[in-house]
């Protein structure tokens, strides 16, 4: 989605009532973030809303981007936030071969997840980190994508296909239009 560099549009302040709504929505969507919500979205601070192309709005605090949202799609955290609190999100992992494609903005394809280097919740070897409590992740949910052999996440986006289906089909599109490290949103300078 942010493959091209872009410049931020108008910046406006978020009403405190709207701010409360965002806060509630974030907690609802990412319940594990709740213990940290006061660090991420302090109650008293003034949130800013920055409009960026393609009808995406970006919520930021001062000059740190926090969350972005495309129209009324789910609120998605910025990757800097994910890097800080990686354990609060549903995570999957891709194999090494897929990293370079992801980092150049390609759509994430399922084979990168089902191959030996990839991890999906429900895999026998998923371990605690990628297990998601043994539950499958449905299409439409937000997942953080880690990479094999790397510490930090490289992509975040909305699943196009449930993980169960992925394991059966082993091909097709996994995540489209995500936010990856090094894309336009990542490089965005808000100061």
């Amino acid at each position: 989605m942010f493959k091209k560099d872009f410049s931020p549009g108008a910046k406006s302040k978020v009403k405190s009532s709207a701010q409360r709504g965002i806060r509630a929505k974030v907690i609802e969507q990412y319940p594990l973030l709740e213990p940290h919500i006061d660090d991420i979205l302090p109650k008293k601070e003034q949130l800013d809303l920055v409009k960026i192309p393609d009808r995406v709005s970006l919520y930021c605090l001062g000059s740190t981007p926090l969350f972005w949202q495309h129209m009324d799609d789910p609120i998605i955290p910025h990757l800097t936030l994910v890097h800080k609190y990686p354990w609060c999100f549903t995570r999957i992992r891709i194999d090494r071969g897929a990293i370079r494609f992801v980092l150049s903005g390609a759509t994430l394809m399922v084979p990168g997840l089902t191959s030996p280097g990839g991890r999906l919740p429900g895999d026998a070897d998923a371990g605690e980190e990628y297990g998601n409590g043994g539950k499958d992740v449905e299409a439409g949910e937000v997942v953080v994508v880690d990479a094999e052999g790397k510490e930090h996440a490289c992509l975040i986006g909305v699943l196009k296909m449930g993980t169960k289906e992925m394991r059966e089909k082993k091909k097709g599109v996994g995540i489209e239009n995500g936010h990856y490290v090094g894309d336009g949103l990542w490089k965005l300078d808000l100061s």
Partner: peptide, 21 residues
């Protein structure tokens, strides 16, 4: 586990990515 403090992440000064990338 949830009470863990945020991770400190180092970003590359040249390309802004995490150094492993």
């Amino acid at each position: 586990v949830d009470a863990r403090p945020p991770k400190d992440v180092v970003y590359c000064g040249v390309c802004t990515l995490p150094p492993e990338y």
